[in-house]
């Protein structure tokens, strides 16, 4: 079988790549997709630990993470559509209305 730390390392790699997307990209759609990547890397960790310690709670938490992600994407894409309609921009740098 595959050692546990291989799965954790895959999770770490995907998490760092997703964080790079969130921090470095300026396109709001790519930032959202990188957020999906972050949540998926956490799901890999949940399921790997659940499998290696023979506990169902890992899978149950992964199911809840997926449900919350679906809700988050629906609201975020609604915000993106409203943003494009009102300000016609896709760059996160142009949306600084709430900056103090």
């Amino acid at each position: 079988m595959v050692p546990l730390w291989w799965h954790i390392s895959l999770g770490v790699a995907l998490f760092v790549i997703g964080a790079a997307g969130v921090l470095l990209r300026r396109n709001i759609l790519v930032v959202l997709m990188s957020l999906e990547l972050l949540l998926n890397s956490v799901n890999i960790n949940f399921i790997a630990f659940g499998r290696y310690y023979a506990d169902f709670r890992g899978q149950i938490f992964a199911i809840f993470v997926i449900a919350i992600t679906a809700a988050e994407v629906a609201v975020a894409l609604g915000i993106v559509v409203a943003l494009v309609r009102n300000k016609s921009t896709l760059k996160v740098d142009d949306v600084t209305v709430m900056k103090g």
């Binding site: 895959l10 790699a13 997703g18 470095l24 997709m33």
Partner: peptide, 21 residues
């Protein structure tokens, strides 16, 4: 894992959002 990491890099590096998706 290798394909997942490579495609994740493409997500972040691609210029076109359709390619990222």
């Amino acid at each position: 894992a290798a394909v997942a990491v490579i495609t994740a890099l493409i997500v972040v590096l691609a210029r076109n959002p359709v390619h990222s998706a």
